[in-house]
Design a protein around this nucleic acid. Structure first.
Lengths: 341, 341
DNA sequence: CTGTTAGCGCTTTCAC
DNA sequence: GTGAAAGCGCTAACAG
């Protein structure tokens, strides 16, 4: 592999001149010399060694991003699109993504290692939890990062997040528009911040339409299919006239549980019961019926994240906190209630 | 951030001594000096700068891996687990994964850039196609890489692949064991090498059981749900007594199409018709009925890949080509034929 | 046993 | 306009 020296020798100039030309520095270089260098670059097939550049500049042009394994050995299906889009956005800003895996038992330690070895210039965080120790650590270290997801109401750091409240709000308004009045919500446990926002959308949607909130229409469960089934079963313990005509599930996985349980009870989905999920997980469009769901605007989010990382690395800036509106995707699992008012 | 100089000053030794201690070099260092250095490291919180190390060693300890966007804006759902496991395997070998996105119109160009800038030490390829131009390029460049997936029968390079033939073979034998005799296969177009191997498993499975191959039981379609539906519809144009009692689909997505079409025709899945997919895509366990499928052994594959990358980087070795057996996961979509012999 | 020093490939200040 | 030289942080050959 040719180095800057080879090019200098070939062009009969100093290595400094080569460097100037390569970097388009305004150090006045004659058009002639420039051509000479360029030709030498061409002939030798020279490309600057990025490691040497990085050492000199004390940066890596690498952004760290951690994969999180979710229970069941599967990876969060939203995050694969996320990673792809993130890599794409980063590349167009001259960065690359370095992926690593998290250590559930000591979440901050990998981040610490990567900082100390100066492996990366910044981090993008995802799958944040309430009072996320990684977030705390990075804030304390004053290390550049931006988070996909909020963490705690009063922590001062850069984040981008889906407006889960708005997403569910839109879904509820959509159901009300179809004629639904008895709308239930299956939410996550109270500890989930993301879950709290989404739930708020449900409450706001009902309130704005003047529909009273019924505590027996709000269930909280874990994030898995089985919990969705159970929640559905529980709602059906209500006497028939009190049963909801629509259920907003806080995630696609729970929505799938609801649909499976409904099918087992011969409830016709889309008419007897409307179901809405959240995430637009791959394959949900092929369920029977296809699942109405709320799609997170991954492309916009990754672009914002990258933009913020760039800005942060360019110099300190005031904290940026951005909420991106999601999009309701109407499919077969939702429709006019069977006995509309 | 402290550098080696700070530690040397702090420990009152030369930087060379610090380096020796850090690298556990056998350059005879007294236990005493070593302790001194170690304490200084402790006090200063020193960690070697990896960029400087890399410049010196002329490597990056980075393995490049490209994301491929599949049509429909979704990412191959298998590959997110793959990436996670790959990152994990790489880390335990002292590497990190640098992810980048492919350029469909000039696939080799990104690889070329990353090689020329010396951004990575090696590549892991996935989503290979027949006569993959990236593979060709890397072979020609003699750049270290290993591929997840075969590319052409006679190219000499390192690869690890799922034994698709064996996977489908096992599935067919399983169906035969249940009493099925009329087994159809929905395959990919002939250009697909992966598809060819899987199809061979079907043919071998029938042959070993002495069941004659029927051309009208072999359909070839594109990789999407719609194609699966259409293929199913086509099979059902056969007169009732000639219709298959089981269908092996070459992918979960196609299997889902088959199931959806079957449901639309009120065919009872798991008894009237057994369906088997390939990949164990997330959510397939929650379909109704849950999908019997063939799971690719991702963990083993990523471990093999990493092992080979390590070996290749340590020095040239004879070509390694490894086939890993997949695992049949029996679920609700397959069972004894309704009118077994 | 430990220190001096050259050098990895590049950028950039400072002289000419 | 161009070049010499210092230096980024580290490793390792060589001296002592």
């Amino acid at each position: 592999m040719p180095t800057i020296k080879d090019v200098a020798r070939e062009a009969k100039v100093s290595i400094a001149t080569v460097s100037y030309v390569m970097n388009n520095k305004d150090a006045n270089i004659t058009a002639e010399t420039r051509q000479q260098v360029l030709r030498a670059v061409e002939r030798t097939g020279y490309t600057p060694n990025i490691t040497a550049r990085n050492l000199k500049a004390n940066r890596t042009r690498l952004i760290g991003y951690a994969w999180h394994e979710t229970p069941g050995g599967q990876v969060n299906s939203l995050l694969d699109r996320f990673t792809y889009c993130l890599a794409q956005a980063a590349e167009s800003a001259g960065y690359h993504i370095l992926t690593f895996t998290d250590r559930p038992h000591d979440p901050a330690s990998v981040y610490n290692e990567l900082i100390r070895t100066r492996r990366v210039d910044a981090f993008v965080l995802a799958s944040t939890i309430v009072n996320d120790p990684r977030t705390r650590f990075l804030i304390d270290q004053k290390f550049p990062f931006v988070s996909f997801g909020r963490v705690a109401p009063d922590w001062d750091f850069n984040w981008v997040d889906t407006d889960g409240r708005l997403g569910v709000y839109d879904a509820v308004r959509y159901l009300i528009g179809l004629g639904h009045r008895r709308i239930a919500m299956i939410a996550w446990p109270e500890e989930s911040l993301t879950g709290t926002f989404r739930l708020q959308g449900y409450l706001d949607g009902l309130a704005d339409a003047g529909i009273a909130f019924r505590p027996d229409y709000l269930l909280r469960t874990e994030h898995n299919e089985q919990s969705g089934r159970e929640a559905m079963a529980k709602l059906w313990q209500l006497e028939p006239s009190a049963r909801p005509t629509a259920i907003v599930a806080i995630s696609d996985l729970i929505a799938i549980g609801v649909m499976n349980e409904a099918r087992a009870r011969d409830i016709h989905l889309g008419s007897d019961l409307s179901v809405i999920g959240f995430d637009n997980t791959p394959l949900t469009q092929y369920l029977c019926p296809s699942l109405t769901t709320i799609e997170q605007p991954i492309v916009e989010i990754t672009q914002m994240l990258t933009q913020i990382v760039e800005d942060v690395l360019r110099g300190p800036l005031e904290t940026r906190q951005v909420l991106v509106p999601p999009r309701l995707i109407v499919r077969g699992s939702s429709g006019t209630p069977a006995h509309s008012a």
